[in-house]
């Protein structure tokens, strides 16, 4: 099919193609490699994102919301950030960068979810407080009315008892 010159040309072409491919791949990798500065920036971003998420979850928790699910996310993100920082310390900037990105993504919706939960918890608290105030007011009114009736009844009983104890004159002295 090919003579010896043909084979030689094909071999040269394959060798050139291989070398160019290696060169292109190495250059592309060098262009897109993640350096220390990128990793540091991403770590700072992840740190800030996690801190904001924590502040929101803390507020929701204080308001009485059920934050168990959000807490799981925070813990997962915290582990990722710690691992990212540890990778950064040993010079694995690429891993640190990827872990920091993952950390930021994990907590991306936490602030919003925590705010929603906080509003719900505050609303539930207000409703419960209103209910308690209403029940308390009714209870106090009933107590007030009953205590007046009770006081009249007990006062009457007390006076009857006192009158029974009063000494009576049997006969007029002559």
């Amino acid at each position: 099919m090919f003579d010896s010159d043909g084979w030689r040309v094909i071999k040269k072409f394959i060798a050139c193609f291989f070398m160019v491919s290696v060169l292109v791949f190495s250059l592309v990798h060098a262009c897109f490699a993640i350096g220390q500065v990128d990793a540091e920036e991403m770590l700072n971003k992840a740190e800030n994102d996690l801190a904001s998420a924590y502040a929101s979850v803390k507020e929701s928790d204080f308001a009485g919301a059920n934050v168990s699910e959000l807490l799981n996310k925070l813990e997962f993100a915290g582990d990722l950030l710690a691992e990212a920082n540890n990778s950064y310390r040993v010079g694995d900037y690429e891993k640190a960068y990827l872990l920091a990105v993952n950390c930021s993504n994990t907590v991306s919706n936490v602030v919003y979810e925590a705010s929603t939960l906080k509003l719900e918890a505050e609303e539930a608290y207000s409703q419960k407080l209103m209910f308690n105030v209403e029940v308390g007011s009714i209870g106090l009114s009933i107590l007030f009315v009953l205590s007046l009736f009770g006081w009249r009844f007990l006062k009457k009983k007390y006076l009857e008892q006192v009158l029974e104890m009063k000494p009576e004159v049997e006969a007029e002295p002559k």
């Binding site: 979850v57 807490l71 925070l74 915290g78 582990d79 710690a82 540890n86 310390r89």
Partner: peptide, 11 residues
């Protein structure tokens, strides 16, 4: 400087 770290959230 720290050589390692752990991170946790506790109620």
């Amino acid at each position: 400087d720290p050589v390692f770290e752990y991170c946790m959230f506790l109620r």
